[in-house]
Amino acid sequence: MSTIKKFFYVNRKAPYGTVYALESLEVVLIGAAFEQDVTLAFIDDGVYQLMKNQSTAGIGMKNFSPTYKALGDYDVTKLYVEKESLEARGLTIDDLMDLKWEDEDDDWAENDSIRVVTSAELADIMSEQDVVLSF
């Protein structure tokens, strides 16, 4: 790949009620094969995608929340969660899955994938992107 572009995926929907969250995750995983610079943003109801303890046996749908834990393996290591969206929903980072990525070049050291950022910080990050995909 000649030039690496910055890809930004915007997630604004809750899981299960609509198919957006799952579609986004699949596109991210497929896109990861192209070895671009990938960033995910979780805004509004998108923050619900990262909730801990999801258990879908009762609704007969596939629980795709464990797949977020594989993102690190796909070199998707930047997941930004908007602080304002969390607070409006009575949530803190402790309500979210503890997502890690391992640094192969640093003896597989574990690093946090999720970073909570303010709207202003997220606006800056968004403005630096080459390609924005919205779900």
Binding site: L29, A32, N63, T67, A70, D73, E104
Partner: peptide
């Protein structure tokens, strides 16, 4: 079982290596 996906070949190679 753990991640609910079949890993891409690049991911598989890296994970097997580890």
């Amino acid at each position: 079982e753990e991640y609910q996906i079949a890993p891409a070949v690049r991911v598989l190679t890296k994970a097997i290596g580890k």
